[in-house]
Amino acid sequence: MANLKEIRNRITSIKSTMQITSAMKMVSAAKLKKAQDAITAMRPYSSKLTELLQNLSATLDSDSGSTYSKQREVSKVLLVVITSNRGLCGGFNSSVTKEVTKTITEKYAGKKVELFAIGKKGAATLSKTQKVVSTRNDIYDDLTFDNVAAIAEKLMELYIDGTYDKIELVYNQFKNAATQLTQVEQFLPIKPIEGGNVSAVNSDYIFEPSKEEIVLALIPKSLKTQLYKAMRDSFASEHGARMTAMHKATDNAKELRDDLLLKYNKARQAAITNEILEIVGGAEALKN
């Protein structure tokens, strides 16, 4: 059995760890509220903009379609991997990196796949086995629409000039504080409406200047919004995952502390009992 000093030192160390994990949990909870409000408010706008764009695009002739929506043979793919800059958030980052590896080996087997990493953790892990052509770790310092739009513009340029035939986003979608859903979402070319269902958006409206010009103006805005929504989803998911991980870590530390306290009290009681036995034995020896 470990001596009392060793157990006491372990208890002190665990109490310090509990203070850290508890503080991190509260910080993440505060940040999560703000991030959750932002993504919740943004989703209806993003969904409606995407729906409007898809409906308008579907009514256009193929010859008048945008270069962003034309399908071409896929030989070179870019995956935009969105992770965090910091750890201590459970399986948040590993779920994304695992999905990237799975996508490369299964979905794009035999294709040339390169990565654009947003977040230090994803870049550090995937650069060991995959080709990371670019990183952006500073975006979380000021996560605004304008800063994300600059990245979206760069991705659009890479697609238009033929550097890549397809661009996809891999990120964690926020569901709640305890649940994040890993998504592989097509960014470019613009995904057509599934099943060919087009709402009657074109029958009762007069388009000015023209339907084609409106679509061409909406596409860049829609793509920027799509990337910004993915970043916001990932940001909220990160804080939810970290809050949950730190809550579990605090609970585990409490359980370990209680076990050590029980062990410490037993060891202390045994030591006191031994001292009493030694005193009684010495007293009996003096009598004899």
Rank of each mutant, 00 (worst) to 15 (best):
I11D: 02
I82S: 06
S66M: 10
A150F: 03
E284H: 07
N85T: 00
N147H: 12
G90W: 08
G119I: 10
A200W: 08
K120Y: 07
K248M: 10
I7W: 13
E255K: 15
R136H: 12
L115S: 03
M156Y: 02
K112P: 00
L143C: 01
G122R: 01
Y228V: 00
R232A: 13
T101S: 14
K31G: 00
E99G: 01
F174E: 00
A152D: 02
K111P: 01
D233Q: 05
I82P: 04
F207S: 02
P209M: 09
M246V: 00
S22I: 00
V148S: 06
S94D: 12
L32N: 08
A109S: 12
I82D: 03
Y164T: 04
S66E: 10
I104R: 02
G196H: 09
V215K: 04
Q183Y: 02
K5Q: 10
K191I: 09
A253V: 04
Y164F: 15
L52W: 04
D61S: 15
K120I: 09
K31N: 14
L78C: 13
N274K: 15
Q186E: 09
G91P: 03
S94E: 13
E278H: 11
K98H: 12
G196W: 13
D142G: 02
G195Y: 10
L32T: 01
C89E: 01
K154C: 00
A241K: 03
E153L: 09
S94M: 08
D142E: 12
L181G: 00
D63E: 11
A109C: 07
V81L: 06
A2P: 04
N202E: 08
V170G: 01
A109K: 14
R86K: 12
R86H: 10
K25E: 15
M24I: 03
S66A: 11
K31Y: 12
E157W: 02
A123I: 01
E153N: 11
L88R: 08
G122D: 10
A178G: 07
N176Y: 09
R86F: 14
S134Q: 13
G195P: 04
K221Y: 07
N3E: 12
A35M: 05
S84A: 15
A236W: 05
T97N: 03
Y159A: 07
A217F: 11
V184T: 10
V77S: 06
S84N: 05
Y228T: 00
A58H: 08
L262M: 10
V198S: 09
E106L: 05
A35T: 05
G119W: 15
E106V: 05
F92Y: 15
H239M: 06
T163D: 01
L143M: 07
K33Q: 13
K5C: 05
Q54L: 15
S95W: 03
I14Q: 06
Q269Y: 11
L49A: 15
N176I: 05
S199H: 11
E114A: 09
V100A: 02
A38L: 13
M26S: 15
T125N: 01
L53R: 14
D141T: 08
F92P: 00
D141V: 00
